[in-house]
Design a protein around this nucleic acid. Structure first.
Lengths: 148, 148
DNA sequence: TATCAAATGAGAATAATTTTCAATTGGGCT
DNA sequence: AGCCCAATTGAAAATTATTCTCATTTGATA
């Protein structure tokens, strides 16, 4: 494939894919590029549109397949919005949390884990063994706060 | 309407609805009852089926409309699962968090907020103003842990 | 108990996602 | 550089999920 773009994230994705014996196709790398260069999270349709802009024709099913695969690999994260919608954001590595601007759907990463120091003891009293968590912070980004 | 069931949650819902000038219909109260008496979170289809069992014919659109409304009122919470699916659980009051069993989709509430003592300062340095959060803990409940 | 805005049901319409399968392609091997 | 083949893709159909429309019903208030 020809390369119209280049970035560390692209090579990161290549690497993860190769480790798993998966192919680095133009479509997959385009999805990475699109998500990584967007400051806001994107819907499936938006990703599809942007990938089509890059590569010409691209099947929607491929986008779905790629996103599902990438989510499993920790390359992208699916985010849920208060209005019920959802979108995807690039996410290098497993344990990163995200702040989402409720106005522009902009995504901001942060590595600190808010529940790191939380004592699960009281919660696990019920017998529930916590293994994982999903956290999203909602609020306003600087731009949207200024615009308001 | 006739009552085949009775519980505090029903009166709680009635109260919230009345305060907002919304009607306490049989369908709405049935949704509350179904969700409250289920230890696991339910999909829209499951809720529809159970409400139909209670009331006979019930439109699917009504279930969607009710769930959306209830979510806004803080009566139910929409939960998201790692496999991409989602479900609903009863949730009395706004700020309750949930543990979800990844095996049976059972839901366990806990009132302690894991991020209560988290210092957002480092995160807000980026200019982002945190207003809200969504947290779900994943793991295994006692039953599923024993069964495994 | 009459009234009426709010809510419902049924099904059509739309949107979102998955499946199927023939055609294409990336990556390893000469 | 060219061959091979399993992995991947595209296109369209199929399925599933959600929303909309509008005629009919119903809860709450007087």
């Amino acid at each position: 494939m020809k390369k119209d773009f280049e970035c560390t994230q692209e090579s990161y994705a290549r690497e993860v894919l190769r480790e798993k014996g998966l192919k680095s196709t133009a479509q997959r790398l385009a999805v990475v590029h699109v998500l990584h260069t967007s400051r806001k999270s994107l819907s499936v349709g938006e990703i599809h549109d942007r990938v089509k802009d890059m590569l010409g024709t691209t099947g929607l099913a491929t986008i779905y397949r790629t996103l599902e695969m990438f989510e499993g690999l920790g390359i992208v994260k699916r985010l849920h919005f208060p209005d019920g919608g959802h979108g995807y954001a690039f996410s290098q590595g497993e344990h990163v949390h995200h702040m989402v601007c409720v106005d522009c759907r902009g995504v901001f990463d942060f590595p600190e884990c808010p529940v790191e120091n939380f004592d699960y003891a009281s919660v696990e009293k019920q017998g529930f063994r916590v293994k994982n968590h999903f956290i999203q912070l909602f609020g306003q980004c600087v731009k949207c706060a200024e615009a308001a």
